[in-house]
Design a protein around this nucleic acid. Structure first.
Lengths: 215, 215
DNA sequence: CAATATGGATAGTTATGCTCTCCGTTATGG
DNA sequence: CCATAACGGAGAGCATAACTATCCATATTG
């Protein structure tokens, strides 16, 4: 398979494929002569993954690069899954130390309850702490009151998530499934949540379904 | 309160506040003379919301504008909640009609099971369909097998979400809570999910907790 | 062997989200 | 009352990200 076919197969413009090659998001094809190369299905697959992470997951090209590196290293370095997940987590700027301490306390309670483990400086932890501070700063404490209910559901979800990965053949495949499950899975779940919210909203506020006024 | 204080209070640079004013993200202050204005706490609040939607929610300035418009209109137009949620949903480009039909079928099944209602062309629906197509195209059908389990949890989450909004005083406040709950709530929940995944992962793969190798 | 495609490098383009500079007006402290 | 600082508003400028387009010296192919 050469450039034109790779492009057609993946739906990515030739110029963009070249750009991704330059950025190291796509491994170079196998050279057949000093300045010609051949690509295969793994390149098509990789391109689709790149586009999915970018367009659905909203990751930057740089972040996609880190995630892919983690996936590729996973063949040798066990549990690159954590590295991959780290690259997914944005790093917003910090709230006041006081607020952060409050949020950290909340989180510690949840962690103990569910058997999670906190690591200081862990991007996931920083991220959750920051979101909690933001919500409080916005004056929407009513969300935080329900935090433990959210945590319980997150725990249930995670059990499903992990159930999915067991049963996959290779470590590489497990890590990729974890990444896809995290990035696209978050989007998917958020979408389902929105549907369910609409349904619940109708159930609560419009028992006599007035046509045309729903949603 | 004048510009400098508004900026200090909200943590947003003066130049940026002016920019948001120009873009209509922030209503103009009350004029005290032809070219002077006064701001109040509602402006501080609004600025914090804008920054939260942008930095945590990852919304573009334009999307934030639409969401805010919907919140403001909610005082008069009932159920602008749907409009607000629509503005949150990105619109990626389409998969093949064939794939979309398959995804739509899946979704219809879930909807019937949970009493959700589908509207053709609804952005939420389009979005979920697109994500399903992407996952399938990536060859990660193992995620889709668990779709109904995800849906069931999404339904439980939505019940909690809606429970939160009932009990709030004004319609405007309900809509804002719904927006914050959706945008920041998605992030929060995704973070909790990640924690839980790490915990489960440790539980499954490292029953004898080898120190230093976790995550 | 002529037309077309390829790989690789470099430069250009577009969109977004600010940030900077002016400038005439307005507050304000001495 | 006046010097000085701050303000509001408009426009230009800037940085980054993610492509996209152009060249051109080889390769491939009908």
């Amino acid at each position: 398979m050469r450039m034109a076919e790779l492009s057609a197969e993946s739906g990515v413009p030739v110029a963009t494929v070249k750009y991704y090659l330059r950025e190291g998001l796509l491994p170079p094809g196998e050279r057949t002569s000093p300045n010609q190369a051949r690509y295969d299905v793994s390149h098509v697959q990789r391109l689709k993954l790149v586009r999915a992470l970018r367009e659905v997951g909203g990751l930057s090209v740089a972040a996609v690069g880190e995630v892919l590196k983690a996936i590729d290293d996973s063949a040798t370095t066990y549990n690159a899954l954590g590295v991959a997940l780290d690259a997914l987590t944005p790093q917003p700027d910090e709230a006041s130390e006081e607020d952060r301490a409050w949020a950290r306390g909340l989180l510690a309670g949840l962690a103990e309850q569910h058997g999670w483990k906190l690591h200081d400086g862990d991007p996931t932890e920083r991220n959750v702490i920051d979101v909690l501070c933001r919500i409080r700063d916005l004056g929407h404490d009513e969300l935080i009151v329900r935090l433990d209910e959210y945590a319980a559901l997150a725990q249930e979800l995670a059990v499903i998530d992990l159930g999915i990965t067991t049963g996959l053949p290779t470590v590489e495949r497990i890590v990729e499934a974890a990444v896809v499950g995290s990035v696209l899975g978050d989007r998917l779940f958020a979408g389902l949540r929105r549907f369910a919210q609409e349904g619940e909203s109708r159930r609560l506020f419009q028992p006599g379904h007035l046509p045309g006024t729903d949603r």
